[in-house]
């Protein structure tokens, strides 16, 4: 699959990539979607870790998902459990953490596990887009 570059195939001419936002707060999903769509991304939503795992395993997402943005404090399967699953099963999909609670120890541990960025809410749209773009670059590099 290393030749595969989703940005060239998905969602019409303006699609920079497909991003999954995992957060239990509908408000957060709404603004992240708004911000990233304006940046030309195709955005999928999941309300917890369990739904996120279902989403990534569903149909073409298995192949077409470029970046996951994940909250930590969520019901059912929480962020840490979901991230562990993604790292193990989809090591090539870059992960961004977007959390309401800055925790240095957790940030260090997550970055060690290969999370690209540990972002703390509230984050400005430009910074979020820059972070997603950085994650996209990693995705491209991983496919070279």
């Amino acid at each position: 699959m290393s030749e595969f570059k989703s940005g060239f195939f998905v969602g019409g001419e303006s699609c920079n990539g497909r991003v999954l936002i995992v957060d239990d707060e509908p408000d957060i999903r709404k603004v992240v979607r708004m911000t990233l769509q304006k940046g030309g991304y195709d955005v999928l939503e999941a309300e917890d870790g369990e739904k996120a795992i279902e989403t990534i395993n569903a149909g073409e997402n298995r192949l077409l998902l470029d970046v996951i943005i994940c909250d930590i404090r969520m019901p059912k399967v929480n962020g840490l459990e979901a991230i562990a699953y993604f790292r193990q099963n989809y090591p090539r999909v870059p992960l961004l953490v977007l959390t309401g609670f800055p925790d240095t120890d957790m940030a260090t541990s997550l970055l060690r596990q290969g999370v690209v960025d540990y972002l703390v809410k509230p984050i400005e749209g430009e910074k979020l887009k820059a972070s997603v773009a950085r994650a996209m670059e990693q995705r491209e590099l991983a496919h070279l």
């Binding site: 408000d27 709404k30 603004v31 309401g100 609670f101 809410k121 509230p122 749209g125």
Partner: peptide, 10 residues
């Protein structure tokens, strides 16, 4: 606090 702040900022 940070969740609503994210909504407000966005």
């Amino acid at each position: 606090i940070n969740n609503p702040l994210q909504l407000i900022l966005g």
